[in-house]
Computed example of a mutant assay.
Amino acid sequence: MDVDVFVAAHRAEWDRLEALLRRRRRSLAGAEADELVSLYQRTATHLSLLQSTAPDPALVARLTTLVARARSAVVGSRRATWRDAARFVTAGFPAACYRTRHWWVPTALVFTLVVAGLGWWIAHDAEVRSAIGAPADLREMTRPGGAYESYYSSSHAAAFSAQVWTNNAQVAGMSLAFGAFLGVPVLLLLFQNAVNVAVGLGLMSSAGRLDVFLGLILPHGLLELTAVFVAAGVGMRLGWTVIDPGPTTRAAALAREGRVAIGMAIGLAGVLLVSGAIEGFVTPSGLPTWARIACGVAAELAFLTYVFVLGRRAVAAGENGDLARADQADQAPVAA
């Protein structure tokens, strides 16, 4: 392709498109708007030809900018607003949590049973405890003021809250991301966390200090574990989508569930921020045990109400936790 000849043949069209774009701030007549669309389409074709046959850097840069401006004028652009954030908080996130309840509620029940079973086994079997650690070390961990109690006041409350929040957000993020691998890593991650909780439960129970352990873990653990269960449920749902994408193509189904998972990661980060604050400021506080547990129960009930009242209402209104329809890419129809 002779670039000079090509430029001479189409320069007038590009100049006219640029002139229409400059005038766009004022109203265009109907014929001018049609001309703008037509010139945008032709200039995009010119750019494609140049990139594939005669990539002149300066000319390609000019046409790339021109096509981008024209596309914005023709298609329009949309910026995120506070209304989008409000929609996410009041509808999108609770709807996504509610829609995946059939995954994370059973997950929570199975996790609780596994923790209770392993904790009982550890508490009543001396051989298992000896496999975990030397008797002297275990006594040091479970004594008044030992490792289990001092952990929650090991650093400044604000720093400790930030550390806990970061760690828990990482666990939730891993649960969401690992879902793409058919959900198997999510189950392994959950089992690892169940074992960690069960070890503390069993050791403190064997030392006759179960009440102290529950007073330390329940204030923040209820909301924290619920967030992890929700993340795991969403991750396993994402993994199931790989196996059964439903009536759409697998790519479209994974894209939809992936967008939902990203939104869930943002929402759960907020939930874990609350649980981290409780763990940093309430759990090690001098409040009576009943008061600390009451704070945790209140936070858990508030979240469940948020999901099962607001979320159910949003799902009934057609919300599914995905982007608004206007922000989604169009999908070509496929045969059933």
Results as ranks from 00 to 15, higher is better:
22 R>N: 00
22 R>P: 01
23 R>D: 04
23 R>C: 02
25 R>M: 00
28 L>M: 04
29 A>D: 09
32 E>Q: 08
33 A>L: 13
33 A>M: 11
34 D>G: 15
35 E>I: 02
36 L>W: 05
36 L>K: 01
37 V>G: 04
37 V>Q: 14
37 V>R: 15
42 R>W: 03
45 T>Q: 12
45 T>E: 11
45 T>W: 09
46 H>T: 00
46 H>E: 07
46 H>Q: 11
47 L>R: 09
48 S>C: 13
49 L>T: 14
50 L>K: 08
50 L>A: 10
50 L>V: 14
51 Q>W: 12
53 T>Q: 13
53 T>Y: 14
53 T>K: 11
54 A>C: 08
57 P>G: 02
61 A>P: 06
62 R>C: 09
63 L>E: 05
63 L>W: 07
63 L>S: 04
64 T>C: 02
65 T>P: 06
67 V>Q: 11
70 A>D: 05
71 R>F: 03
71 R>W: 06
72 S>M: 10
73 A>Y: 02
75 V>M: 08
75 V>S: 10
79 R>E: 00
82 W>I: 13
85 A>F: 15
86 A>N: 12
87 R>P: 00
88 F>W: 11
88 F>Q: 07
89 V>L: 10
89 V>E: 07
91 A>R: 13
96 A>Q: 00
97 C>P: 05
99 R>D: 13
100 T>R: 08
100 T>G: 06
102 H>E: 04
103 W>Q: 06
104 W>C: 02
105 V>Y: 12
106 P>I: 14
106 P>T: 13
106 P>G: 09
107 T>E: 12
109 L>S: 04
110 V>T: 12
110 V>Y: 12
111 F>E: 05
111 F>K: 06
113 L>W: 12
117 G>I: 03
117 G>W: 09
118 L>S: 03
118 L>Y: 02
119 G>H: 08
120 W>L: 15
123 A>G: 03
125 D>R: 09
132 I>Y: 08
133 G>Q: 11
133 G>F: 04
134 A>V: 09
134 A>F: 13
135 P>K: 03
135 P>D: 07
136 A>W: 05
137 D>H: 00
138 L>A: 02
140 E>N: 11
140 E>W: 08
142 T>C: 10
142 T>I: 08
142 T>F: 12
146 G>N: 05
149 E>L: 11
150 S>K: 14
